[in-house]
């Protein structure tokens, strides 16, 4: 079993829901990321989602776009991000790490080289926004060979037939995008999320994480009622932006928000 599956199994036994924070690797600078990863684990994160900077992040709202631009000013590359995970692993061999990004850096590196490097660095899975299962056959094969999970998105526009296809192709968990739009958008319709999550669960035994539009303890708690995991991204990245440059303040601010969200989820 992968670290991701182990973690979900353990949480299920404890009757707890997973908290998955997202930050963009190398934002606002490369030195910040690994200490911040440790701080997030301490503040209650169960799985870490680490964004790989890309020049054309089509599914991101302005907050994460700017984060990627800041990271790219330091030329943070896919191999740099995997190196950060390797460094993180020197002190933490338990917490699963998921890379989130876009296909092109992986294409350019080559699927096989990517999978080998990712496994060697201690990466557990990968979520690439712009590759649906229909195009992912080759990539899935090499990831599977390295026992890496590939997480796919399900959206409000995904019909039952596609949910089944996605459930069959993916592993680790299913990431339900709670709204039509880009990351960091506002409105969260809890009733629809509930309906959608139960629909996904009809077709799959994989845990379901919900992301997009969750920014505080209250919204996290609402989602945690039905989902197995809550993903928080733009709200954290916004904190990074606000504390630009000041590493200690950054860790404090991120930890405070995560702890608050953790309480919200655990109170459910």
């Amino acid at each position: 079993m992968s670290r991701i599956a182990d973690r979900f199994a353990a949480l299920r036994q404890q009757g707890r829901k997973a908290l998955i924070p997202y930050i963009t690797a190398g934002d606002p600078g490369p030195a910040v990321t690994v200490p911040l990863m440790h701080a997030m684990v301490k503040a209650g994160a169960d799985i870490l989602e680490l964004g790989v900077p890309f020049s054309d992040p089509m599914a991101e709202g302005p907050v994460i776009q700017r984060a990627m631009e800041r990271a790219l000013e330091h030329h943070v590359s896919l191999s740099d991000v995997m190196q950060m995970v390797a460094t993180f692993r020197q002190q933490d061999n338990e917490t699963p790490v998921l890379l989130m990004g876009y296909l092109n850096p992986v294409e350019v590196m080559g699927y096989a080289k990517f999978a080998t490097m990712a496994a060697e660095s201690g990466v557990d899975g990968v979520l690439l926004v712009d590759i649906p299962p229909e195009e992912a056959e080759d990539l899935l094969a090499v990831l599977k060979a390295q026992q890496l999970d590939m997480v796919f998105l399900v959206s409000p526009t995904t019909d039952d037939q596609r949910i089944q296809r996605i459930a069959a192709a993916g592993s680790g968990f299913i990431y339900y995008v709670s709204l039509k739009g880009v990351t960091g958008a506002g409105h969260l319709d809890t009733a629809e999320v509930e309906d959608r999550v139960s629909r996904i669960k009809r077709f799959s035994d994989l845990p379901v994480a919900v992301g997009f539009g969750i920014k505080d303890a209250e919204s996290a708690a609402r989602v945690a009622k039905t989902a197995d995991a809550v993903v928080v991204g733009s709200a954290l990245v916004k904190k990074v932006e606000e504390k630009n440059g000041a590493a200690d303040k950054l860790e404090t601010a991120i930890s405070a928000l995560l702890q608050e969200i953790r309480h919200g989820i655990d109170a459910v």
């Binding site: 296909l103 649906p132 195009e135 959206s155 409000p156 526009t157």
Partner: peptide, 20 residues
Amino acid sequence: ERGHFGQYGGIFVAETLMGP
């Protein structure tokens, strides 16, 4: 039928756009 010109083309978009 999947939009491929040899190895090129295809559909590489976020899931929300697959339905539309």
